[in-house]
Design a protein around this nucleic acid. Structure first.
Lengths: 204, 204
DNA sequence: CCACCAAGTAATCATGCGTTGACATGGTCC
DNA sequence: GGACCATGTCAACGCATGATTACTTGGTGG
């Protein structure tokens, strides 16, 4: 398998015996490979090589491949909002969405971070983590949109989550054009229309 | 690995020496496992066991695992439209979408067929197939929606494709609720709003 | 300077998997 | 019935990979 040079390794200077740096290097390399290649196609040997570190150290610091994967997953941003929550109002929501979806600078992941979130290690615990992360995002959308208490408001919010997931997949993993090449500005108009259509007439 | 009994094997009667039936059985088993588990976690031994067939026969009939995968992929429906194209008009489009996305009876795939389409074997040729299939779907959407010749009409159509992909992923692979439990009727209203928001005021 | 322990290394093990080739068997046509 | 080919079976190989163990190295505190 052994795909080479997925990440431009930080070309570290002569760092010697720095445990936390080693940990960090492994994590960065792991995120990139897991995000791009998925769980199975990511080999510990490649990750260790990318990190410039001995293979056995992933056992020392993360216990196992699964442990490394979960640690990498735990560093995934909350997709949108990044903890700070989504901006209020639908126009702002649409804009935040378009920015996040079109951003190209995911150096820590190599691709859109939501792909890391979708990667499957086969562990049910991981599936649950993913579900929770996306549900949380749905909640933020619901809240940010100043939702009318419609009975299907939650469903509509999750459709927006699904849209975000789909766009990330189609852009990063499929490369469908023109979607894959669209800039935040290109995306903004259509996304605004979707948000307004989905969530009802503008309210903020 | 060896997950067992992913598919309720057809409990075939004493079929003996029927090449085409063997081929078909392998294909059905392969579709289910590939769709549910992905390429890497699907083992030929499990597929053969599901099909009630000897392992070496996949070499005979499909040459290799990659060959089996491509054959399985080739049987994936065109996602929507199923060759016949999408119904004309936006209301009909929204309805077709909601039906396809909410359908539960994908016995040949075990999950929504779009997941099969997203499965990655690492082969670039497969990526291209996928791109083509989704692009084709985008074209159908564009055409079915009686698009105004807006400069970003294509982009908007592909956003609808992305939505479909995202919903399939979030429903089948993530299990986000309430989205995962939504019926076609539940989906219809919100989808209609999205379609109309995205594609402009109703025109058919 | 020395002892000690964390950090790092190298070699090896165990296993699961795709692939392969040699062999058995059934059905069909002369 | 016998030859012949398609169909199906069996056992094994080779390889990649995750895991593990025994060992070395370096720096830090006494």
């Amino acid at each position: 398998m052994s795909t080479d040079d997925v990440t431009g390794r930080p070309a570290d200077g002569p760092r010697r015996r720095d445990a936390s740096a080693t940990r960090r290097a492994l994590l960065v390399a792991a995120r990139t490979r897991f995000t791009r290649l998925g769980y199975d196609r990511t080999t510990l040997r490649d990750v260790a090589a990318d990190a410039g570190v001995n293979l056995a150290l992933v056992k020392r610091y993360f216990g196992s491949k699964e442990g490394l994967f979960k640690a990498a997953l735990a560093t995934a941003p909350r997709f949108l909002g990044e903890g700070s929550g989504l901006p209020r109002g639908r126009a702002a929501l649409a804009e935040a969405l378009s920015r996040q979806l079109a951003a190209g600078a995911w150096t820590e992941f190599g691709e859109h971070p939501v792909l890391m979130l979708l990667r499957d290690s086969g562990d049910e615990q991981v599936t649950e983590l993913r579900r929770r992360a996306l549900a949380e995002f749905g909640r933020q959308v619901l809240e940010a949109s100043g939702a009318a208490p419609a009975p299907d408001a939650e469903l509509r919010a999750e459709l927006l989550v699904a849209l975000g997931v789909g766009v990330a997949v189609v852009r990063s993993a499929v490369g469908l054009r023109p979607l894959a090449d669209a800039t935040p500005e290109d995306l903004l108009g259509p996304l605004r229309d979707i948000v307004e259509g989905l969530l009802g007439p503008p309210s903020g």
